[in-house]
Write a protein that binds this DNA or RNA. Structure first.
Lengths: 350, 350
DNA sequence: CTGAAAGCGCTTACAG
DNA sequence: CTGAAAGCGCTTACAG
């Protein structure tokens, strides 16, 4: 269908040189001296013919695809995961482009085998892959890693030396709780983002405990409730918290999506936020700043996660020295209205 | 770095046949009779060696990449556009996988030349591309199309016969306004999603006019205000509407993001929604159902847009007959609380 | 029923 | 300074 494109062969003929020379000139190979006239002649012909090198041929000859795969494991809650996709993907793509790599996007659908993505690696579609949301029982992933196929995880997979990039959940949770502490709260509840089998959930809970401990406040199991990714779980958990004695005056909800449900429960009880009860979320999904009152939360640097993952992966592919196995990115506390902090009115673009 | 993978050559040797036969058997080429024993022998060796065909070699020999590009033109408002990315991308990817294609994601950054993406096509990285958010002055796009490179647009580009997929903006706006009319409103204002040079803005405004006309309501220019993608513009536009005589009792805001600002203006005026004034948005971004009151809006089928675009593109690539140049997908009115319609409580997952 | 051979469009030692 | 040649791992007429 497409018009046949010119090849180096054609350029060589029209410029009256060999294909080798054409290749050397077009790739600007260093330490090769071709007479300036020849060089110019080749370049001119290439431009005239509107020549673009054939990527496939290049890949075959060089043994490199200069493409990385972004494997997107959809988690238990699609809406939730979708909140991270644009940032992650664009971060990864931008970093990739910086190094001259392309990005192949490969979601794993709920109805397909978990590790279908290995075909991408084994068939040499890609030089390396970023896997978002690894499963701890992913045998194929471990095999691939054994074979020294370049992999960077977004998330964590304990017990392996596969490189990974993640946020510092403990730190993030601590900043949220410290903020509430600094506002004078003592009875601070927590609703986790998910069951504690999820690493991130446990870590955020740890951060909560650490902050309290450092403030000299003793644990109160009643103030700890479990969320499960969605709003409904947050609503139910909040109801339980509201039946506690003493009533918490503030709640840290370790997921904005879960916090949406918690907010609903608060409204149902006709609590004024943040006057009667303060709330801080986690993630900074786009809805966070549109609810009333606008949700104070801990921002996850999705773009940075994607960028770092890609950059590290490319270092790995190109055998540059790797600094650390596990890269943790810092989160940022975004203070809005729901925590009751005196507001330095910040401009936020809707 | 990676372990060298077995090739057809190796399989041929170990199975004691020619490379041709191996290729024929592994590709299951029809109308080729290879003795069942030979076939089994080859298959067994392939399995034992954990053979995967080399995609690059295959591409070069076949002249097909079986990869499509999704070119993502970031619009004037990143937050806004990001709302569509997950659905579009996943729709496109799923359709692509169904036909055995891969998807290369290629964003065009604000700071790079608009038509950098043509390199993907000219270098044979992809067999075809989906371009989201075409610019009407994209000369390179037209050239590519001239050369018969397969392209499907997401959005519209008047004056060309390039295939495209979009939503039916006129229809969507009409359903929104009809809904308000059915609730008894007569003085219905509109805030456009963007300046009218954007096709979608004009179309949504047309839908608004059509609905009013069919209801026998005459135009009132004062009730028409222009939004500009973001919340601030919505807030400003709403302020203007609220100074109109007669005061509108309902407003159709042709973008949820703009509607967020309009809601703020309403709250500032201490208007009760929907009692004092009703509002209906457009897009159904994820924040729409978390604001208070939950926003009634017109849902854009992002997944369907991606799916259709990919499916049509693949038909084009494979030279299957194409049904129509311009595919318009229907939107769906999502009734929540902000319009004041009697609520049949629907379950929505947070 | 099966194989020898050309070709896809490049890169890259190697030789002169 | 430049070229002849091998090779990347497949597919695909073509021949027997």
């Amino acid at each position: 269908m497409t018009k046949p494109r010119p090849t180096q062969h054609q350029i060589a003929e029209e410029a009256g040189v060999s294909r080798t020379t054409v290749s050397l000139v077009l790739n600007d190979v260093p330490d090769v001296r071709v007479s300036p006239e020849t060089r110019q002649r080749i370049l001119k012909v290439a431009r005239r013919l509107n020549y673009y090198p054939n990527a496939t041929a290049r890949r075959l000859a060089s043994g490199k695809t200069r493409t990385i795969g972004l494997v997107w494991h959809r988690g238990p809650n699609p809406t939730y995961r979708d909140a991270f996709l644009p940032g992650l993907l664009q971060g990864a793509t931008r970093a990739a482009h910086k190094y001259g790599y392309h990005v192949l996007f490969r979601p794993i659908e709920p109805d397909e085998p978990d590790s279908n993505y290995v075909e991408l690696a084994r068939s040499h579609h890609i030089d390396g892959l970023i896997l978002s949301g690894p499963r701890s029982d992913d045998q194929q992933l471990l095999e691939l890693h054994e074979e020294r196929f370049p992999i960077v995880l977004h998330g964590q997979m304990p017990g392996t030396d596969i490189l990974s990039v993640d946020i510092d959940n403990v730190y993030g949770a601590k900043t949220a709780v410290n903020h509430l502490l600094s506002l004078g709260h003592k009875d601070i509840g927590i609703i986790t983002n998910a069951p504690l089998v999820y690493t991130a959930s446990q870590q955020r809970l740890d951060g909560y405990y650490q902050a309290l401990e450092e403030a000299g406040i003793s644990k109160n199991k009643d103030l700890v409730q479990e969320g499960n990714f969605d709003g409904e779980s947050g609503q139910a958990a909040m109801e339980k918290l509201l039946s506690c004695k003493p009533n918490p005056t503030a709640v840290f909800v370790a997921s904005d999506m879960v916090a949406m449900g918690a907010l609903k429960a608060m409204r149902d009880h006709e609590l004024r936020i943040p006057k009667d009860i303060a709330i801080v979320g986690f993630d900074d999904i786009s809805a966070a700043r549109f609810v009333t009152p606008a949700l104070t939360t801990v921002r996850v640097p999705t773009f940075g996660l994607g960028w770092s993952a890609a950059e590290i992966l490319i270092r790995l592919i190109e055998q540059d020295p790797i600094v650390q196995t596990n890269t943790l990115l810092e989160t940022e506390l975004v203070i809005r209205e729901s925590c009751g902090a005196p507001l330095v009115r910040q401009v936020e673009h809707a």
